[in-house]
């Protein structure tokens, strides 16, 4: 069964795709209080993601979660670069696994606290 990843969008990310075809693909969650892209992938690609990141798991919704924060940043960059929510974006992420894993190692010790 295909798996999905929800890529959350804050104002900055929404601004980055404004005017592109991607803008029409923004999904609303929780009554419009959260925006996201839903990236779907086949089992083979999902397995590559799961194998690359030992914390990753599939939750009760069939979504891949518990990936490093760096993964979320990179997948958004690849979506914006390829203008796609499909295999191109996922391939772009898989090509950058080493980079994500290095960043993820640092994330285990420290994550910057948001200022509101």
């Amino acid at each position: 069964m295909a798996k999905s990843i929800a890529v959350l969008l804050d104002d900055k990310r929404i601004g980055a795709v404004k005017g592109s075809d991607l803008e029409g693909k923004i999904e609303q969650m929780f009554g419009g209080q959260l925006s996201c892209f839903i990236v779907e992938m086949d089992d083979a690609k999902a397995k590559q993601v799961m194998d690359a990141f030992d914390t990753a798991r599939v939750d009760s919704r069939g979504f891949i979660t518990d990936v490093p924060i760096a993964f979320n940043r990179v997948i958004f960059e690849e979506i914006a670069r390829t203008k796609s929510l499909g295999a191109e974006a996922v391939d772009g992420v898989l090509a950058r696994v080493d980079e994500i894993q290095k960043a993820a190692a640092k994330e285990k010790e420290f994550l910057p606290c948001p200022e509101f």
Binding site: L8, P114, F116
Partner: peptide, 23 residues
């Protein structure tokens, strides 16, 4: 339906997004 997945919520927190009041 939209489920309250604990993993999803943790992911949102870790990304530093201010969660909506519905979460």
């Amino acid at each position: 339906k939209q489920k309250f997945s604990g993993s999803f919520v943790r992911g949102m927190v870790a990304e530093g997004l201010f969660p909506p009041k519905v979460i």
